[in-house]
Design a protein around this nucleic acid. Structure first.
Ligand SMILES: [Mn+2]
Ligand SMILES: [Mn+2]
Ligand SMILES: [Mn+2]
Ligand SMILES: [Mn+2]
Lengths: 219, 219
DNA sequence: TAATTAAGTTAGACTAATCTAACAATTTTA
DNA sequence: TAAAATTGTTAGATTAGTCTAACTTAATTA
């Protein structure tokens, strides 16, 4: 049980997120680097250190995978991140587009007592403000196949359950379109050429791009 | 408005605390270093950097003082620290000897919105769980002359208002003696030789050392 | 006041995390 | 399959924060 730094935690979290989102086990160096906003050389150096600590499996020129221990740490960081987001949203009246950046800092506070007490204080929430599931203590990140708005055919009704992009810019745009978690969406039409959709939410119609639609998870 | 690191914040806070506790404006390099658990050489290096950023006034071989800006930052860190301690104690049911170490991390989270919302959530508390005053937003750390238990003559009654030492070891000891904030203390006797005191709290008598007594603030 | 002790500084080294520039391996594509 | 493009690695440099060991200045004391 050695010390794990703020930065190392971010690398582990990124590896889990990327493989989770892509559906593949292995992650590439460039992919990881661009996700973290660092240069590939930097990521490569860090990967060697994480390998020394037995947190990743990684051979020269091959894809990177998390070890059991690496995955546990990454899951714990995500758990903390989502619990803090829930706290900010539920208790401190932050809006859902403001919580992510602050949680990015809070997720690195080291105290298992703190996070357990926080979870209890929030009454064991299952989802964060963006609809993402909160892993339980020592638990796994459950892989759920989620459809996006892009998969919904014209004329069908669906319900928004989560967002993929957590950036403030995107979330504010979602609000502007009148959308939020648990809102019903009716797909009025879709352009063949550029997948531009017209959707109806609470009686109001809006046009949304392909990029927008693929960031909205629905059921 | 440049970036200020976690470490720099700790140095500024230490400078304010030391000068506050000693009653003197200037702080020495060794004093600062030992307070932070680093070597004097390390503190000396950091002081040069803080001087470059105009956060301290410091000439070779002279005492160190905070600039206006340095003092503001230090006060803000202390404000955050005490608000977080109050949150942990009041809302998350931490005991008063557990809050300090976690707050030592939380005090460095950068978000003025967060701390303002937290303060509101806690309903603008004036004191932290150890009886220390919480500075208001943009406010000063008010210098109050506080007597310690050591100053109370035999046969007199006083009331505990705060503790000086915030360490877990000391605080647990305080609880064991049956003491807490706002408890009344009756001074039964004192040894001339080593200042060992016998005090009575809620009908129970205990012997306490000079070191113990000087860490209890009373009125 | 001179010697001794305490306080403070400098030089040189180390680690973590980052970069740029050059190079190597792998994969894609013509 | 050979060339081109993509992906990944290495070497060398930088900055923040830390250390040890040697040195200098200031303060205390005999
Ligand atoms: Mn988030
Ligand atoms: Mn983070
Ligand atoms: Mn404290
Ligand atoms: Mn701190």
């Amino acid at each position: 049980m050695f010390m794990i730094s703020f930065t190392e935690e971010n690398y582990l979290k990124a590896l889990l997120r990327i493989s989770f989102d892509s559906g593949e086990t292995g992650v590439g160096t460039n992919e990881l680097a661009s996700h973290l906003g660092v240069k590939p050389a930097t990521a490569n150096d860090m990967l060697k250190r994480l390998r020394d600590k037995a947190l990743v499996d990684f051979e020269k020129y091959k894809k990177i995978t998390l070890t059991r221990e690496g995955k546990n740490i990454a899951t714990e960081v995500i758990r903390k991140h989502r619990l803090w987001e829930t706290f900010l949203y539920e208790k401190l009246e932050f809006s859902w587009d403001e919580v992510h950046d602050v949680a990015e800092q809070l997720e690195h506070i080291q105290s298992s007592k703190l996070i357990d007490k926080l979870e209890k204080f929030l009454d064991y929430p299952a989802f964060d403000p963006h609809g993402d599931p909160i892993p339980s203590k020592g638990g796994e990140l459950t892989k759920q196949f989620r459809k996006t708005l892009l998969d919904i055919p014209v004329g069908q009704l669906c319900k928004m359950v989560a967002v993929k992009d957590n950036s403030s810019a995107f979330l504010q745009y979602v609000v502007k379109v009148g959308l939020g978690i648990n809102n019903e969406i009716y797909v009025q039409s879709r352009q063949e050429y550029d997948a531009l959709m017209v959707i109806e939410v609470n009686g109001v119609a809006s046009s949304v791009s392909e990029k927008f639609a693929e960031n909205i998870y629905v059921v």
